[in-house]
């Protein structure tokens, strides 16, 4: 498409020869690093201890959930505080398929993705007429309804929750290989998928929508259809992270699965890291992960500090940490901008 645009510009206009450039030196470096990271995550059993694998998988889950929220809030203009509905429903589906139906749990994670997708379709039908804060409250209601429904569903042990005892049937190596491959797949689908989407034709429409949905619609962007697609895709991505997270947790109860804290984590990561940028999510997830590790035991004080930090960023640094970095150096890792470069004659 880039070539087509460039070709068009050269034939139509008689002005200076230009071309559209998206790749930058920093993006090439970042792309290579991303591939290295992805391979490293997939090959964790070869170089990491069980404990380190566990931590990295958790970090990957944070990145995935935050990135999905970023797609919703940063691009589709949908603010959801009920993403835990998809975390919970996917994780419960995985427990059902693996523990009750006896399917291999690593396969069950992938199969369970049907659940968040199926939940996302009718909920969007219910919610799409609502706007802004009303939509956000609506998503929370959905999550609470799911929690209450699960608490009364005897098949999954109701409020008492379930344990994933089938995991004891696999050796430590098998578990490490399985979860590492799943974590790499999750990163590829959520972060890689988002990047691919943003660079595609839909990406242009999404960015237009982010800036002004009405103007975008007037330019021929099918705003409602695009929003629906992003909503379903984000539900599946969030669900994938939920299923993988609870596979490592081994135990699920309705309050832990549908914990509103999932939405808080996503909001914190995206707001602090940088709304509407892929780089921000990674920075935010790293900050949250280490903050949680080091200061988690300060309890209420720690949560208050996280809250104040989010508030501060929202008021004084809307672009988050990535926005601040961009003011100093212009070196995007995942550029989605199209730059018009004048070619030398």
């Amino acid at each position: 498409m880039t070539d087509a645009l460039a070709a068009a510009s050269t034939t139509t206009f008689d002005g200076p020869r230009v071309r559209v450039q998206r790749r930058t030196t920093s993006s090439i470096v970042a792309l290579i690093l991303s591939v290295v990271v992805l391979v490293a995550v997939a090959s964790m059993p070869l170089w990491a201890s069980q404990g380190l694998i566990r931590d990295i998988v958790r970090l990957c889950c944070y990145i995935a959930i935050a990135q999905m929220w970023n797609m919703l809030a940063g691009y589709a203009g949908i603010v959801s505080v009920g993403q835990q509905a998809f975390v919970g429903v996917a994780a419960y589906m995985m427990f059902i398929i693996a523990q009750l139906w006896g399917v291999d749990p690593f396969v069950a994670v992938v199969l369970a993705m049907i659940a968040p997708a199926l939940l996302a379709i009718p909920t969007y039908g219910l919610l799409h007429r609502l706007d802004g804060p009303y939509f956000a409250i609506g998503t929370w209601v959905i999550a609470e309804v799911m929690r209450l429904a699960t608490s009364n569903f005897g098949y999954v042990n109701a409020g008492a929750g379930m344990s994933l005892r089938v995991m004891t049937g696999y050796s430590a190596t098998e578990r490490a290989v399985g979860i590492s491959l799943l974590a790499a797949l999750m990163l590829l689908v959520t972060v890689g998928g988002s990047y691919w989407l943003l660079r595609s034709r839909y990406g242009l429409a999404l960015i237009a929508m982010r800036d002004n949905p009405i103007a975008a619609a007037s330019q021929g962007v099918n705003v409602s259809r695009l929003r629906f697609l992003i909503w379903v895709a984000a539900a599946v991505g969030t669900g994938l992270a939920g299923a993988i997270y609870f596979m490592a947790q081994l135990r699920i109860t309705p309050p832990s699965a549908y914990d509103p804290n999932w939405a808080n984590i996503a909001i914190f990561i995206v707001m602090v890291g940088g709304l509407g940028s892929l780089e921000g999510v990674i920075i935010g997830a790293l900050i949250y992960f280490f903050a949680d590790r080091w200061f988690g035991q300060y309890g209420a004080t720690y949560l208050v500090v996280l809250g104040l930090l989010t508030l501060f960023m929202a008021l004084f640094a809307r672009g988050g940490i990535w926005g601040l970095i961009c003011k100093v150096v212009d070196a995007p890792w995942f550029p989605t901008r199209r730059t018009l470069v004048e070619e030398r004659q």
């Binding site: 201890s49 380190l52 566990r54 490592a248 914990d259 804290n261």
Partner: peptide, 15 residues
């Protein structure tokens, strides 16, 4: 929080 309990227990055992 049960999620937190599983995380810290796993960390204590593995790390």
């Amino acid at each position: 929080n049960p999620n937190r309990a599983a995380e810290v227990a796993g960390d204590l055992i593995l790390n």
